[in-house]
């Protein structure tokens, strides 16, 4: 299976030669979470959407918990997608844990990522001696409780998608119903990897110009995290959006899109 199939990559928008914008989703959803924003970029940019392995239409069989025990494996996947598309100097837009994955990818292969846009990012969710991540370990254990409580809801419509009968006429309907659903076992594992990760030390490895977009009132990421990132990412700029919630690209797509467009180089390649 190629990297493009494995990560369910879709390419749209302006043709080859145009500046490429790659969107990386976060925990709990898949590439469809960019649907309110991605179309705005399609006129001037080539738009690449992907599902992290374990999410959406990715190859669930490829989800080996040992390999995906750290976010570095997802970063390597993103770089493999860029390599398969022969892309260098892209704009990488990542949301939440997808932003951390973007940071890791840019640090690993700086030539492939010309600009980073981090939407509601955090290098670490847990509080730690002087660092305010916003969560205590007990809070995160509660998340697993919530995942378990919603186990049945999550699992209910999953089977047809996992088994994947391409010839079935009902498939489109199944896919709609399976929107943002995840195999409960994978969701649990990815949640653990996501919320226990600590990538503060990787920030110093990044040389890429970076825009940090923070939601003014984000239930998951305290304001102090934006400042921390701004201080530790060389050449980054912090923009606090007057939005509420962890998903400004969904609750305020227009504001988020404008902020990104202003940060990007002229789209004419």
């Amino acid at each position: 299976m190629t990297a493009l199939e494995r990560n369910n990559v879709t390419v749209s928008g302006a043709g080859p030669g145009a500046q490429t914008v790659v969107f990386v989703h976060g925990f709990g959803c898949d590439q469809q979470m960019w649907r309110l924003m991605a179309p705005a970029f399609e006129e001037h940019y080539q738009v690449v959407l992907l599902d992290l392995v374990g999410a959406g239409g990715s190859d669930l069989v490829a989800y080996d918990p040992t390999r995906y025990a750290t976010l570095d494996a997802h970063a390597a996947d993103v770089l493999a997608v860029l390599e398969a598309l022969e892309l260098r100097g892209v704009v990488l837009v990542g949301h939440s844990v997808g932003a951390t994955i973007g940071v890791l990818a840019a640090a690993q292969e700086p030539a492939r990522v010309a600009r980073l846009v981090l939407v509601a990012p955090t290098p670490r969710f847990l509080n730690d001696d002087g660092y305010i991540g916003g969560f205590e370990p007990a809070d995160l254990e509660e998340l697993f409780g919530a995942l378990d409580d919603n186990y049945l809801t999550w699992a209910a419509d999953l089977a047809p998608v996992v088994m994947g009968y391409p010839d079935r006429p009902a498939l489109a309907a199944e896919l709609t119903r399976s929107f943002c659903r995840t195999d409960p076992v994978i969701a649990r594992h990815f949640a653990r990897v996501t919320f226990w990760s600590d990538h503060r030390a990787d920030l110093a490895r990044v040389r890429t110009p970076t825009l940090i977009l923070q939601s003014a009132r984000d239930a998951l990421v305290p304001l102090a995290v934006g400042t921390y990132l701004n201080q530790h990412l060389r050449g980054s700029q912090l923009l606090v959006l007057n939005t509420l919630g962890h998903c400004p690209h969904l609750s305020a797509p227009q504001i988020t899109t404008t902020a990104i467009e202003q940060f990007l180089p002229s789209p004419v390649g």
Binding site: G28, C29, L140, A146, L220, S251
Partner: peptide, 19 residues
């Protein structure tokens, strides 16, 4: 609760706003 908030913000909100 914090766990539910994490779940709702990462999963519920995207579903609600998109679907």
């Amino acid at each position: 609760t914090v766990g539910g908030r994490l779940h709702f913000e990462t999963h519920g909100t995207p579903l609600l706003l998109l679907r």
